[in-house]
Design a protein around this nucleic acid. Structure first.
Lengths: 154, 154
DNA sequence: CGGGCAATGTTATATTATAACATAACCATG
DNA sequence: CATGGTTATGTTATAATATAACATTGCCCG
């Protein structure tokens, strides 16, 4: 389902990057937020808020839904995770500095949500918005289907 | 918020079209389904399942959530309504025969969800999918922002 | 060290959606 | 027109997702 050979490293990297970004922006990367981000990355795919909650409960005592949702809100606002609306799930952002919009290829077999941030897509969407005199704020683009791995494409 | 001068007509048209489509496909356009579709169109914008339920309750006795969700599932499967995932709401499809995929410009001011089915978008999305060896099944594209009316663009 | 703000805790509840089983309506076929 | 299969709806209960509202804690700055 995923390619990173040393998945531990990729989690650690994500956390470090988050740390840096928060420091740079002078916002607090608290324990809860770190833990939630870590769990999102550990899942290495879309994870649901209550699944995060479940995993947290095993470690720390009695964290409740609002705490998780607040952390997720924070992480989302700061581009560290994305919400996948069609799944009601959250996924770590692989390039939290590059751009706000992320497009996803979501495999209904293995559940992977691969970022696919083709600028051509952004262009054509911007063009369409402009053509409709629409002032774009945020774009949700979620493509479901079957990924190459699951289809057994060499 | 919307342009159709005679909104009653546009509801009636949508229902008639639905009738025809279901007849052609030899599937049943039952009372519940018709009523739900009518309410979706009456709202003339995204409407939530429980709002539909509320409006139904006033007319018919004691319709329960599963009934509404089943009707919405049916209508969605047959391309007569679309679900807007970022709003958890449903909207009538203006061209139920032309294509399955629909893209939306959603105004966060007035709540309108305008279909914008630019084939250029479809092209670029298909291209990206192919490039990723991804077998596309369904596309969710929801652009939030502010529509021309709300921005007061002449 | 105290006042203010940001974050989290806590309780309760709202909102969205479905499982599971019972009944009814529809309809083809003998 | 009986009957049996299929599709649709009714019904009860509950699962899953998310937030409101208020209390408390912790952090930082002066």
């Amino acid at each position: 389902m995923h390619n990173c050979t040393t998945h531990k490293d990729c989690i650690a990297e994500a956390l470090e990057r988050a740390e840096e970004i928060c420091a740079a922006r002078d916002i607090r990367f608290t324990d809860v937020r770190r833990k939630v981000l870590e769990l999102v990355w550990q899942s290495h795919g879309p994870i649901k808020a209550y699944d995060i909650l479940g995993k947290l409960d095993q470690r720390i005592a009695a964290i409740k839904p609002p705490t998780v949702y607040r952390a997720l809100d924070f992480l989302t606002e700061n581009g560290l995770v994305h919400k996948i609306n069609s799944l009601n799930a959250f996924v770590g952002c692989s390039h939290p500095l590059k751009h706000r919009e992320c497009y996803f290829l979501i495999c209904s077999d293995c559940g992977e949500a691969k970022e696919c941030c083709n600028p051509d897509i952004t262009d054509v969407i911007s063009k369409t918005s402009r053509h409709n005199e629409f002032l774009m704020d945020h774009v949700t683009l979620e493509i479901t289907g079957e990924c190459s791995d699951c289809r057994g494409v060499h």
